[in-house]
């Protein structure tokens, strides 16, 4: 964690008005993160606002565990998204560039790939989808993915590659 960010967190703990620099640093990232998992922009705005509200409430208890402040926010965001979709079908938006990255990883190039991939992704367990998008789309290191999803790093690595293998196998079969 950058020293500047550390100082800012300490200031925010004392006076919540000093949370603003942290908010400005992470707002766009968290909003886009939420929007990728929401059907509408308004839902994303609401959830993003909830994420920061919760962060402001809990900042007093925030402890620097060595991870970036961002990974703490992403964790809150994932929980909020999960709460939001408690009774509804969850949404995951997949960017074309993500498909390109994934096709390279899968060593598959095919015009029908988006359709086929969509089909295969829908059959995966949520944790696998989250791992794939955090790793191959958002390009996060496994250490941070593990922190966000509250699993061990080894587990994050193993499950991500297991997910890729599953998709590969299914794509080859179909």
């Amino acid at each position: 964690m950058r020293i500047e960010e550390k100082k800012q967190i300490e200031l925010a703990k004392k006076n919540i008005k000093d949370f603003e620099p942290l908010y400005l640093a992470y707002h766009e990232k968290i909003l886009r993160f939420c929007f990728q998992r929401m059907e509408s922009k308004n839902e994303a705005y609401d959830v993003c606002s909830q994420v920061f509200m919760k962060a402001m409430k809990a900042i007093g208890k925030y402890q620097d565990k060595g991870f970036s402040f961002g990974s703490w926010l992403y964790r809150i965001a994932l929980n909020e998204i999960s709460t939001h979709y408690k009774k509804k079908t969850k949404v995951i938006k997949v960017d074309e560039s993500f498909l390109f990255t994934l096709s390279e990883e899968l060593e598959e190039k095919d015009e029908e790939l988006p359709k086929r991939l969509k089909r295969e992704l829908e059959t995966l367990k949520p944790i696998y989808i989250q791992l794939i998008e955090l790793r191959f789309w958002e390009g996060r290191p496994f250490k941070e993915i593990a922190e966000i999803l509250n699993i061990s790093e080894v587990n994050a690595k193993a499950k991500t590659y297991r997910a890729i293998e599953k998709i590969k196998t299914k794509l080859i079969k179909n």
Partner: peptide, 27 residues
């Protein structure tokens, strides 16, 4: 859990992000 996978959907513009970025409101 069921997932609805949307490929290449709507995108957030920078202006939209900026409009939502009101710390005073959040405070």
């Amino acid at each position: 859990d069921e997932y609805n996978i949307i490929i290449g959907g709507d995108k957030l513009t920078n202006e939209e992000v900026k409009r939502n970025e009101d710390f005073g409101q959040l405070l």
